[in-house]
């Protein structure tokens, strides 16, 4: 790893439930995600990949271990402080888009900045909007946009605040293959051309092939790392895990 990590998990344990019913979703996971990289977290269902992302993003508390986002150690922060870290340093893209139906595309994009009370960087906003081809759609409500367009609005929302890291949770899961390819291409471009850091959770080998680096999870542990994964390499790695 040549550059310092944008987000890092150290010896993270996350358990759901109590007693006999307890499920160890993350079992002493240590992993670092370097800046200016596009990383995929992969694994079969129940491997803990979504849980890892939620813990990394500060959406969920860990039971032990540390999570660092940028310069912030978040495991011991109060809810309000954690909210501020998320607001200022993390961007999100979800599988089901998660746009506010009441807001226009432009308002959705600027929502995070407005919640933080920050002024948008006009030039950066224009760049993001133009790269994503959303210029003509800014005044539209989510219900007036296609799935691919909605996900591009979500990408713009995640990037417009120049966060330390963008987490993308199965961003192509609800899209057709062409729209999916567009979104993945954009995420890759945002890393390579604009210097962002993107961490994507996916179980789709094709989606993983857009990334620079793959982390494979199985049974709550890091099973292996893949450099510059191809779809075939991911598939065989997943198959070897018994997925």
């Amino acid at each position: 790893m040549d550059s310092p990590a944008a987000v890092e998990a150290a010896d993270v344990v996350k358990v759901y439930g109590h007693g006999d019913g307890a499920v160890r979703a993350l079992d002493h996971v240590s992993v670092a995600f370097p800046t200016r990289r596009f990383t995929a977290i992969m694994g079969p269902s129940g491997s803990g990949k979504s849980t890892l992302m939620h813990c990394l993003a500060g959406l969920e508390r860990v039971d032990s271990g540390q999570v660092r986002i940028g310069r912030h150690e978040v495991t011991r922060l109060s809810d309000a402080a954690l909210t501020r870290v998320r607001r200022d340093h993390v961007g999100f893209v979800f599988q089901s888009f998660n746009l506010l139906p009441t807001l226009s595309a432009e308002d959705n994009i600027l929502l995070g900045l407005r919640l933080a009370g920050r002024d948008p960087d006009k030039q950066w906003f224009d760049t993001v909007v133009d790269v994503l081809g959303l210029r003509a759609r800014l005044g539209h409500r989510p219900s007036e946009l296609s799935g691919g367009q909605q996900q591009r609005v979500a990408c713009a929302r995640a990037l417009v605040g120049r966060p330390d890291v963008v987490f993308a949770d199965e961003p192509t899961g609800n899209l057709d293959s062409r729209s999916g390819a567009e979104v993945l291409g954009f995420l890759r471009a945002s890393v390579h051309e604009f210097g962002q850091t993107v961490v994507m959770v996916t179980h789709d080998p094709v989606a993983a092939s857009y990334t620079d680096h793959g982390v494979l999870l199985a049974d709550g542990r890091v099973a292996s790392h893949l450099q510059r994964p191809t779809a075939d390499a991911v598939l065989s790695a997943l198959t070897s895990l018994g997925a």
Binding site: L59, D79, A80, R86, F92, N98, L100, P101, G112, L115
Partner: peptide
């Protein structure tokens, strides 16, 4: 519920 969670993820505090 989902929208509220989204707003929280994007940085709206509990109090907010």
């Amino acid at each position: 519920t989902r929208e509220s969670a989204l707003l929280r993820a994007l940085g709206l505090t509990r109090g907010g």
